[in-house]
Design a protein around this nucleic acid. Sequence first.
RNA 1: GGGCGGGUGGUGGAAUGGUAUACACGGAGGACUUAAAAUUCUCUGCCGCAAGGAUUGUGGGUUCGACUCCCACCCCGCCUACCA
Length: 828
Amino acid sequence: MKRYDPQAIEDKWQAVWDETKLYAASDSDPREKYYYLVEFPYPSGDGLHVGHVRSYTALDIMARHKRMQGFNVLYPMGFDEFGLPTENYAIKHKIAPQAATAANVTTFTRQLKEIGFSFDWDRQVHTSDPSYYRWTQWIFLQLLQAGLAYQDEISINWCPFEKTGLANEEVVDGKHERCGTPVEKRFLKQWLLKITAYADRLIDDLKTVDYLDRISSQQINWIGRSHGAEITFKLRNVEGETDDRIAVGVYTTRPDTIFGATFLVVSPEVVKTWIDAGWKASDEVQNYVTNAMNKAELERQEEKVKTGVDTSIKALNPISGEEIPVWVADYVLGSYGTGAIMAVPAHDERDFEFAAKYKLPIVRVIDGGELPYSGPGKLVNSGDYDGLEGDPARHQIIEDLVAKDAGQGATKYKLRDWVFSRQHYWGEPIPIIHCPKCGVVPVPVNQLPVELPLVESYEPTDTGESPLAAMTDWVNVLCPKCESPAKRETDTMPNWAGSSWYYLRYADAHNDRAFADPEKLKQWTPVDLYNGGMEHTTLHLLYSRFWHKFLFDQGLVPTAEPYAARRSHGMILGPDGAKMSKSKGNVINPDAVIVKYGADSLRLYEMFMGPFDETTAWSDEHLSGVNRFLYRVWTLAQVLMSEGDRTVDPQAEVIQSEIFATEVDRATHKTLKKVHEDITAMHFNTAVSALMEYINFLNEPKRRASFVLAANRDLADRTIRSLVLMLAPFTPHIAEEIWQDLGEPESVHIQGWPKYDPELIKEDLVTIVVQVNGKLRANLVAPIEATEAELTDLAKADERVAKYLADGEIVKTVVVPRKLVNFVVKTS
RNA sequence: GGGCGGGUGGUGGAAUGGUAUACACGGAGGACUUAAAAUUCUCUGCCGCAAGGAUUGUGGGUUCGACUCCCACCCCGCCUACCA
């Protein structure tokens, strides 16, 4: 009997699939398209992670399943190559990032092929390839032209370890999310992209796509839209005079509490602009502001006790007419709203704390619970507005503010513009030339790509300039407009640039005249199903939606949203239940798993380990169970296929009847239905369970022996075929091998998916559960069409039930046809 | 503090109003073997010798019937956070 040798058959078939380009998607195929996308990997030196495998296997199964159902499926793969780990590795080992990337891509490619994913390798995308980033640069120039890219001298998050500016999204807990270094503040001239211009659409259009709820809500949260009012308080300086240099509006979501505003708080950032404008601050205010501005984010966040200084400025409440003091305090952020608030200590916890500390008045204006009370309620102590409820009060006050020209309704967002400059070598050069005469000049499109020059040192500098600045040959150019000496922009793009549009390039990966042909975009986009990690929800996913919407507005892509559906896989933890990390030594290497068990086992285990979207810990023991299952499948296949020796083992007890065939076919079709539905719903773990149950059923010794009978030849044949077809999406190699052993000349992966026959799975007998007062007392088997009366009689007749009915009165009988009978009994 | 998940045997988990614990792991015992591994068979959530009983984080509710629906609370995970 032929032995199961996973590694041998996997190598063999991978070579065949590669050579025959079995999974290449055709642009001219008239069948309905389906586009599955997984996040392309960053080719780090660590190699493929089992987390990649989980995501890629899931969509590989769906892609294979859809292909078998006759769809023209696109399931592409590429590499997100720019990024700091590669640069750091290159610096440390003194090799070019290009070389390090090439080596890592080779490893990743080998690993991906060894798992047998059905990617269309002809459409590979490499973000660091000039033929690709040419178009990344081109899109940037379109953004620039549309006024969505701009330069600004801003205080940015600066990572002192990697010596680069960071986007907000990359700062976690005041630390750089990748290297953990506390982030500092620096003032640098940076390129920014106006993602805030798309804030509303990025929220509102979520209604038009099918994203996992937690993904949508996380994006909505991150964008942080709130509705309120912007209110102008007239300011008077110490002398009681108005001063043009000091002015501020405040933003509040609770204009209804305006009578409770007992002071104003302005952020140090705003006060600094006053000082810069020439306003004379007291030494105390001056010091406080300087101090606060020098603090790193982390320090400011860590302060538990609020501090502040009275500026001696007075503000006039436009509604109540009251004069209140203006304070500066760093618990108010310069970067949100207007950078100033009206403090309502009675109804805001932070203001309450501050007022208590500095002995500022606290006035209740909303009827409700204990102070500080931030809930809803009727207005009190609010002059003419007393008695109004929150919503009408807010509307009325905003109306009155508008009438007095002292404010209006306003919508604010937490989302900030995307800091798009990095002071690093290993990224797309920003295609800009700075001319002393003409200013910012875009590199003419026909001169794209602006290629990264080879440099001697990739070390970032401390000056806030990228290493490219040292490349004078490259930096010094003539201005494309006036031909006077000019300099290239030396900052590069963040690593999120290339990934913001790569899914479009898959539609037309080799186009050198456009980022993609409009017809091909129409053919393939949008992505029908996109799967990726939750950690990209507020980074890559949001950025790429933004770019896509921009391209849509430019008429360059056919849809307003890039991804029709987005799903996310759960994290795989180490066997110890902790997040996998090199330092903890709990990293599972897929290569080792393949060497020991084979790729099919790896794939099947990752699907079986638990619900696809939930976090689960790795277990080698559970993996070996799946491996055993595949050996059982193999052995069973040998039995079902055995040709020459179809005699009965005289010792074996066999079933040789029509009932046997009916029973087997029914099991087959039930499994077909279950597996089909579970793949569609991404319930891969239960699909695998169903296959296991099916194998257990077929493998029962009596059945196994019966399959070998000459009379059951056809039954055995159709059973093994259905089994192999069902397994094909999950474990493509073993399925292909058995399919070939069945004498089939063509690949199993281009066969039609076997449809289940609803007639076949109809049962004529069902198990009826009999309960007394809701407690299970008996099971009985009854014909499926039995009436309520018949079921009641059958149930009453059962001695196990009768016992409980004897000493009481049946007050009610509940019958659910095909399912149960429940007697409600009252004992006297 | 806010948002989103989740809590079921020794373990991963199944069941979305109708037999709780499918499937798998682990464990126990048997067969095969000189032996071990592998394989294979039987048993295996808890208490109880058994009959039986209790049981899905806790407490309450709706229902003939609740892991499932509703209310309150406790715990865990992820995301986010002086966002006014």
